[in-house]
Computed example of a mutant assay.
Amino acid sequence: MAYEKELKVAQLAVVRAAILTKAVFHEKAKGTVSKDDKSPVTIGDFGAQALIIAAIKHNFPSDEVVGEEEASSLREQKDLSSTIWNLVKDVKLDDPESDALLGGPIKSEAEMLDAIDMGNSAGGDKGRIWALDPIDGTKGFLRGGQYAVCLALIVDGDVKVGVLGCPNLPVDDRELLTEGIGAAATDAEGKGVLFAAVQGQGATSQPLTRGAVTPGHPIHVSQISDVSEAVMCESVEPGHSSKGDNALIAQKLGISRKPVQMDSQAKYGSVARGAGDLYLRLPVRKDYVEKIWDHAAGDLIVREAGGQVTDITGSRLNFGLGRTLTENKGVVAAPANVHPQVLQAVREVLDAK
Rank of each mutant, 00 (worst) to 15 (best):
A2G: 07
A2E: 13
L7C: 10
K8D: 08
A13V: 09
V14W: 02
V14H: 01
R16F: 02
K22Y: 04
K22I: 10
A23Y: 04
F25I: 09
H26C: 02
A29L: 07
G31N: 07
G31I: 05
T32W: 00
S34H: 12
K35A: 12
D37A: 15
D37L: 10
D37T: 15
K38E: 06
I43W: 11
A48D: 14
Q49Y: 06
A50M: 09
I52Y: 08
I52Q: 13
I52V: 15
I53C: 03
H58A: 15
H58C: 13
N59Y: 13
N59R: 09
S62V: 09
D63S: 15
E64G: 02
E70Y: 03
S72R: 06
S82M: 01
V88E: 05
K89N: 12
G104L: 13
G104I: 09
M112R: 04
M112K: 01
L113I: 07
D114K: 13
I116V: 12
D117V: 15
M118P: 03
G123I: 10
D125E: 10
R128M: 07
W130G: 14
A131L: 04
L132W: 08
L132D: 03
L132N: 06
G144Y: 11
C150S: 15
L151S: 08
L151T: 06
D158Y: 09
P167S: 09
P170W: 06
D172K: 15
R174A: 12
E175Y: 03
G182S: 13
A184Y: 14
A185W: 01
A188E: 14
G190N: 03
A196F: 01
A197W: 01
A197Y: 03
Q201G: 04
Q201Y: 15
A203W: 05
P207Q: 07
P215I: 10
I224K: 04
S228V: 00
G239I: 11
G239D: 06
N246V: 14
N246H: 08
V260W: 00
V260N: 00
S264E: 02
G274H: 11
L278G: 10
L280F: 13
R281C: 07
R285L: 08
D287W: 14
K291C: 06
H295C: 12
H295W: 14
A297C: 09
A297W: 11
A297R: 10
A297V: 09
E304V: 02
G307A: 02
G307R: 00
Q308W: 10
T310E: 10
G314Y: 04
F319G: 01
L321Y: 04
N328F: 05
K329F: 12
Q341F: 00
L343Q: 01
Q344E: 12
Q344W: 00
L350V: 05
D351P: 02
